[in-house]
Amino acid sequence: MENNQFDLCVTLIKNAKNMVVLTGAGVSTESGIKDFRSRTGVYQLAPEYILSLDYFYQNPKEFYQFALDNLYHPDAMPNAGHDILSKWEREGKVSHIITQNIDGLHQKAGSKSVIEFHGTMKTASCLHCNKSYSTEEMINRFQTMNEFYICDHCETLQKRERFIKPDVVLFGDTGKWFTVEGFNKILHTIEEADCLLVLGTSLKVTPFSTFPQYRRKSTPLLIINIGDTPYDTDRNTFVIPESIGKSLTLLDEQLRS
């Protein structure tokens, strides 16, 4: 990015009072968490189907083994990108973070207003009675029980109805935010933004990829991502094709100068 455009991004962020941030896997790769679609991503280990609702029902043990090995990162720590977003929230600059990530690192960094659009790997729930299980509890069940994925808190004729599913949105699945009320809240949040910052996502997975379309025409779109997005050439859009931590650190330093 040319210096004058970088300076413009600094000015836009400095003037923002209600910045909404959309984040994807690229924010967490600097914390040692794999993304999904790159050459070293999760989908190089198995096809996308393994993270589908159908596969979960058909092969719950194998699903859990893969999910616990590749999606659950309790020891991962926030990186500079997470920390700066948290600081900007405390300073009244960032109003909401809407994330595709399921690792909880935004909250671990101290961000409060986080919408986990694709859910979280911290918990799992019975599909019948909604009893919540911590992932640590599910790991213990996995290690000590044969049918660890079947809820023992409720009863139904079909065991499949009592499957305990991680609270993440799978292919063919819906989640807390995949409702009329959930979508309306997100779209209203984006419509109210005075700056939309997109970090570490290619914006190619629907419906998350549609969210920038709902910003006001006057609202600038800032994209920091290694790789193209469908919005890169849009009007009032500014692109920094660099790492998240490096870019946000430079931007934050310029805000202070």
Rank of each mutant, 00 (worst) to 15 (best):
C195S: 12
S218P: 07
F178Y: 02
Q65A: 04
R215V: 02
Q58N: 12
N140W: 09
F142Y: 15
T219K: 04
D232F: 08
A80V: 13
F148W: 01
W177N: 02
V168A: 03
P166K: 06
N3G: 05
S218F: 03
D75P: 01
N101S: 00
I98Q: 07
I226P: 02
V27K: 01
G175S: 05
Q58T: 14
D54W: 10
K108L: 06
S247D: 03
Q44N: 09
N59C: 11
H118P: 00
L68S: 10
G119Y: 03
L127Q: 15
T206R: 11
F211Q: 01
G172H: 06
I98Y: 03
I186V: 14
N59P: 07
I150C: 05
K131I: 06
L196G: 00
Y133H: 05
V42W: 00
L127G: 04
Q107T: 13
K217E: 14
F238K: 03
K93R: 13
T233L: 13
T11M: 13
Q44P: 02
A124Q: 04
C154W: 06
P230K: 07
K17G: 07
L53N: 05
T210S: 14
M1V: 11
V205D: 00
K176E: 15
E137Y: 06
D35S: 10
Y214E: 03
V27G: 04
D83T: 12
A109M: 09
F178L: 07
T40S: 14
L45S: 08
I139N: 05
L170G: 00
F66L: 09
Y72I: 06
A80P: 09
S209Y: 04
P78L: 01
K246A: 12
P212E: 03
F171M: 08
L85A: 08
H188R: 15
S38I: 04
F117S: 02
G182I: 03
Q254G: 02
E136F: 14
V169E: 00
I13K: 00
V239H: 02
S243Q: 13
L187T: 10
N140Q: 15
L71A: 10
A124C: 12
F163D: 09
S113I: 09
I226C: 07
L51Y: 09
T23N: 01
I33N: 06
N70G: 03
N184D: 15
A109Y: 06
I84P: 01
G81A: 08
S113A: 14
S218Q: 12
